[in-house]
Design a protein around this nucleic acid. Structure first.
Lengths: 407, 407
DNA sequence: GGTAATAGTTTATTGCCTAAACTATATGAG
DNA sequence: CTCATATAGTTTAGGCAATAAACTATTACC
């Protein structure tokens, strides 16, 4: 009897203790406060009846959250006969820092706990030739700057998140491989990036972070979708019920390497016929006849958009082909992971007007009814997505585990 | 992913209570006993040091489990100086019933809590023309028979699981659609199938159940893999860390509709170029020149195997093509869900000797290094897989929630 | 100003775990 | 054979977190 222990995951976890109950209920209460509709500030009594906890327990839990500084009381809210309740909301004097390292730029921004962007700094620089130490040092300066800005208006930064365009081992603060940066097995000193915060700095894959940003910031409501990130490579993030599905090894959602043409071109991954070989930025530039070598990436993209607007045939057919094959890959992915909505990011969002029609036609051909047109949307966050997602993810992990702020 | 706390399950709905701690620790202790290596019967003290609970707590928890009848004590195990411990093991006088309804047969079997098959009855019958009530009545008789057999040897059946070849809503005991049975939106009276058990009867998709059976019964150790079920259609089950990943709507793993040839044939799903159009049973029969209309499905499969053994070119090329495209689909799937092992079931297991080589070559071409040959295995469970998986899944849910047996 | 209604706190109780002392049962040395 | 040592399992006291119910606080309405 092969006993592959299904406990493997929880094996590390110790016994359940009463402290777990406390932590679980702290998160339950904080979640009610944090995820209340905008402008609504529930009282202790409302939280109690919504969660099923007693008023006494909620009072005690709320006291802890107030002590930790995660929430604060707002003006009384009278709405009926009796004593008015005291409204509770996330403490807007607390914030997190989002950061991004990409090929052409670095950026750092501060958001409060509800996701509002309070400060943002972007610095254009070619990060490919530089050693990672140099890049991190420049980013640390940028981070210090926005942090000081926030501090100036009385806002305390609790922690941060860094998004990089590559596969990461978040637990080990390690970039496994970031081909476009030329990084491979790089250990990052994240604490140096943002010293002396209670929560520290977490590491994210850029596509995953951008995917998570959509959960909070996109107009439509559903929090289950596939985010497709078009950069030099084609990445993805699978969000299910607001949570990232990362797969057993943490790298799920790699839509870029779905095979769309069995006899297609070789891919950088060693495979052949991957989506990336027809819909990655370089592939689109080549097919459109744009010399990307001579320009920066954002310049090339501008040239492409210009060409599309002018109706240059090679550009149009290049994007048409990318859309068609993107549809093939998304049709397959929708079936495998049973998803009914897609958000296009990166260059796919930029060229969405031209990409959209062939994409929808291809989806209808290969998975009719699965991904209806109104469920295929383009991200509106642009470059800021990864940064917002990294910051938002730190906020989210705080809301899920507020005890991290207690000492 | 907020799976930090062992109580994470309760975080979703109601408040965390002290009873949750008890339940969580009951499952922790029972898991240690249930998933110990075969022949090893840990003592209370060993469970305590393995789980981190105190000896006092373990004693109390074990008492509850003994009262519920889930476990029992076995002979003393002396192994050193001091007082010998009392071994603990799953109670082999308790069992669960697995059942399956398929196109050509119904079956029912009893397994003890460690997965050993104690009794099995299969009845060949064509279930397509019959109303579901007739089929269920026949299955109820079969179930009563094996249950009586078990009772005769002093074994009590605690609950059961039923696998059907179609999409199911397990919570509602409802078969949404089972095309090969001709069922659509059918509510099943599962309790009538197996009356008066403490755990009742649960409903499963056949491919998912078969996938779960592999977790316990396949030789290799890993409990993270994609199970590919080759039947009339091509289904699948995605198992991650021993748990089924069903996706947001419960139907993930549909590998059969990954697009492997953008310009391919139309598929029954309304799409085009799906894997099923080249690797489903019918597609293989047609390409091999076998007239499936004139035979039952199992007869056609026997003819195919015969032809393969004789080296009939059309049969060989048909299977070669199926293997090649299966490789394309699995390469894509491996990337999207980040999986490193595959188990072939259904007809893929039967024709594995001929399928294997083109499949591996195709995998190496499209996803080099991702699914190495030793991680691509064929199921050895055959027809019994679904039944064993359904039963095993009931056992597993019992081990995860032993308090269900307390009153 | 009194009553009803609602918000929030205080107090007593219960459940579950831990720590530490205690009992039980084995091995091995003299 | 007896005693020291070691390990298994139980008993007892204590702490923490939630609940229930009584209590205080603050408002609206008559």
């Amino acid at each position: 009897m092969a006993t592959a222990s299904p406990l493997a995951a929880s094996e590390a976890a110790g016994p359940g203790t009463m402290g777990d109950v406390r932590r679980s209920n702290l998160a339950l209460v904080l979640g009610r406060i944090a995820y209340a509709p905008a402008g609504v500030h529930p009282s202790r009594a409302q939280v109690a009846s919504a969660t099923g906890l007693t008023k006494a327990s909620v009072s005690s839990l709320v006291l802890d959250l107030l002590d930790a500084g995660v929430i604060r009381e707002v003006g009384l809210s009278q709405q009926g006969r009796g004593r008015p309740g005291v409204g509770l909301e996330l403490n807007s004097a607390r914030a997190v820092l989002g950061m991004e390292i990409n090929v052409d730029y670095i950026s750092a921004g501060v958001t409060d706990l509800t996701g509002n962007l309070l400060a943002l700094e972007t610095q254009e620089r070619d990060n490919r030739p530089a050693a990672e130490g140099t890049v991190l040092a420049a980013l640390a300066r940028l981070a210090a700057k926005v942090r000081a800005e926030a501090a100036g208006s009385g806002v305390q930064v609790l922690g941060g998140g860094l998004a990089v365009p590559g596969l990461v081992d978040a637990a080990a603060s390690r970039v496994l491989t970031a081909p476009n940066l030329g990084w491979s097995d790089v250990d990052l000193d994240l604490d140096a990036l943002l010293p002396d915060t209670p929560l520290g700095v977490s590491l994210f894959n850029e596509a995953n972070a951008a995917a998570l940003a959509e959960v909070r910031h996109r107009p439509s409501g559903s929090s289950t979708f596939l985010f497709v990130s078009g950069e030099v490579g084609v990445g993805g993030g699978l969000v299910i019920g607001g949570e990232l599905f990362t797969g057993p090894e943490g790298h799920a959602g790699e839509v870029g390497h779905v095979v769309v043409e069995p006899d297609g071109l070789p891919c950088s991954c060693g495979g052949a016929g991957c989506l990336e070989t027809v819909a990655g930025q370089d592939a689109i530039f080549v097919a459109a006849g744009i010399d990307a070598e001579a320009r920066t990436r954002s310049q090339s993209m501008a040239v492409l958009v210009q060409a599309l607007q002018s109706g240059v045939p090679s550009a149009l057919s290049s994007v048409e082909r990318a859309g068609r094959y993107l549809g093939v890959a998304l049709a397959s992915t929708a079936r495998v992971v049973n998803i009914g909505a897609v958000v296009l990011g990166g260059h796919f969002a930029v060229i969405d007007p031209w990409l959209r029609e062939p994409l929808l036609a291809s989806l209808e051909k290969h998975a009719p009814g699965r991904l209806p047109p109104d469920q295929v949307t383009a991200s509106t966050l642009g470059q800021a997505g990864a940064l917002l997602g990294a910051a938002g993810s730190v906020v989210r992990s705080l809301i899920d585990a507020p005890h991290l702020l207690q000492q």
